[in-house]
Design a protein around this nucleic acid. Structure first.
Lengths: 359, 359
DNA sequence: TTGTAGGCGTTATCAA
DNA sequence: TTGATAACGCCTACAA
């Protein structure tokens, strides 16, 4: 191809970018004309417009979004705050947001709160100071009130919460119907013939885990089964936590024949304990988890799980932002988008004739 | 806690942020004074300085980073381009970058190229147009030349590549010593008594997979073993690809007793095939993978794998950026940082007395 | 259809 | 130690 690049010249110093003023000077017209040509304004001669565009391309003109934002008072930057970016869920949501945002001409600034309110507060300041057009946030585990978000509202910056929200407050949010997901999973276990379904419950101060527990209870009630408190185990949703919980359940005088866990790692822990004790899955104990992590397809047997629609959540969050931005601060009426989760049935819960594959 | 928030006032319109001019007016001093007080400039009376800071806090003043950047010609925004954000590797690297960056007062803008050069080109324009202070990039799979990066250099914007780089070109980069990682893994298999070690090789146009293959060959040579071409299988590094590759290997007249895969998903596929055929792991065939994905601890037996030091890579990339920025365009001499991978030995390759646990 | 001029919020230069 | 003033690059009344 092109010959090898000449060795870097020492005097290859920063080449200042070309501005509208440069184009104007070059063409002998005013900056207004340039501006209009580039922004596809009406009232501009097609000839001049073409000339401007051509020169812009030739000189490799790049608009300065900062200057534009400063002038217009609104940028094309979007702030996103997540507890952490690692792990399937948030990474996928961010993927969804970024994809939708970049299509619409927005860039996203990512901040991590590391599950710390203080950091979350700082993130908010950083983003406001960067003049973002909107902020999308999933609150940290340690966020107990909303006061620090008031600044954002006062500034008229659209604010959208996703997944983790503080309940009892009126906010714009995109959430998963965790309750229904849990209901689906539990009902499925019951339909597979389970009579005593246990629940590994997550930290109850988080809305998502409260809702999953409620969905579990709903499914039992719907089948006329009275909940048994000894079958509901508090669990931190880790692998080890799942193992401990399962041991606790097996130690019961009347152990369960099905387990619905609010998380996949915990249900994996449960599976490991069952296998180590020679308990058959799903014949003796059927299992279902929540999140549809990659591990569900690695474990043996494959684990039934509830999918959280991560990408859709990201897309929906972005759309909600654009809606709010379009409403232009006039109607900050709180809007909630609720996504429907989907149960993926796999071997760990399938007691029927043949074991259906992945899907 | 605090009483319930009053219902949203309809006239709760966008409250324009307080600027330096506001502070100046309020205190009856000039904007220059305000600026100096806030930027901790010398030559300012301690009394005035205190007054300014106090008022700033009271009125909740937030500096406008855009205006500052416009004036100073350099922002505190950092652009990051990755092929995709999902998946453990890039998410972790981004985590590392963000953590280091936010400590230093930078915010990061994330772009995904979706493994597409055209998109990558667009990302670059977007970032330049956002006036970022630097760009960190892991090139897409379809990037075959560097021309589109020249613009970045011409602008004097520090450019750092990480993990995936185009070889033969002089760039600033942080990479993993893939060759050594592969060498470690292969040597380990040989030390466990394997005589015929196969290799599942990734797409050879990517430097990382070429280097892993080379490391494999080096280890063989180091033990005086002549490489057997039939034991080196081209694989797309997916689960299915790993399955197919393993079947191919088992069909050989003289099948291998060890497999080093350039990726974890492929080695998982291999494991599945071996188990389904009743071949014992690690006794009959020992396995090792690359990436140290979460799945290595889920599979049974746990999989030996090479860790990529994702977070360190992110940190190192950011540090390299700051170094370049400090050099101030004077010395764009290419600098390479090479990280040392670490082999995590687990059950899938451990033929010794007792099977050591994780870590 | 085109041009002039002022300003977005900040910082740097100069003079007081 | 402080203040007036001019930029940075862009947009947009308003005037021509």
């Amino acid at each position: 191809m092109a010959g090898r690049r000449p060795s870097v010249k020492p005097s290859d110093a920063a080449h200042s970018p070309v501005s509208m003023a440069d184009l104007a000077r070059e063409l002998g017209v005013s900056m207004t004309t340039i501006s209009r040509a580039l922004s596809d304004h009406h009232s501009i001669g097609p000839a001049t417009k073409q000339a401007v565009l051509k020169l812009a391309k030739k000189l490799n003109y790049q608009p300065n979004r900062m200057a534009s934002a400063l002038r217009k008072g609104t940028s094309t930057l979007l702030g996103v705050i997540v507890p952490y970016i690692e792990g399937r869920f948030f990474a996928s949501v961010v993927h969804g947001i970024e994809t939708a945002a970049s299509k619409a001409g927005y860039s996203i600034i990512i901040c991590q709160s590391n599950e710390d309110v203080a950091q979350e507060r700082k993130n908010l300041e950083t983003l406001l100071s960067a003049q973002v057009a909107g902020i999308l946030v999933s609150v940290s585990r340690t966020t107990l009130d909303f006061r620090h978000f008031d600044k954002v509202r006062k500034r008229g910056v659209p604010l959208v919460f996703f997944d983790r929200i503080l309940e009892g407050d009126s906010v714009n949010a995109v959430v998963l119907n965790d309750q229904d997901g849990a209901y689906q999973a539990t009902r499925h276990l019951l339909e597979q013939g389970c009579r005593r379904v246990a629940h590994l419950a997550g930290p109850q101060h988080l809305n998502i885990y409260r809702n999953r527990r409620q969905g579990y209870l709903d499914a039992l009630q719907n089948q006329g089964i009275a909940p048994d408190e000894s079958l509901i185990i508090d669990c931190d949703m880790t692998l080890e936590g799942g193992q401990a919980s399962m041991k606790q359940l097996l130690a019961l005088p009347n152990p369960p024949d099905g387990v619905f866990s609010a998380g996949d790692w915990a249900v994996l822990g449960a599976l490991q304990v069952l296998k180590s004790r020679g308990v058959r899955v799903p014949q003796d104990v059927a299992l279902a988890g929540f999140s549809n992590e990659a591990l569900t397809m690695v474990a043996e047997p494959h684990l039934t799980s509830v999918d959280q629609r991560c990408e859709e959540m990201g897309q929906a969050a972005f759309r909600l932002f654009t809606d709010l931005a379009a409403a232009d601060g006039t109607a900050f009426s709180q809007r909630q988008v609720v996504l429907q989760p989907q149960l993926f049935v796999r071997e760990s819960s399938q007691r029927g004739a043949e074991v259906a594959g992945n899907k």
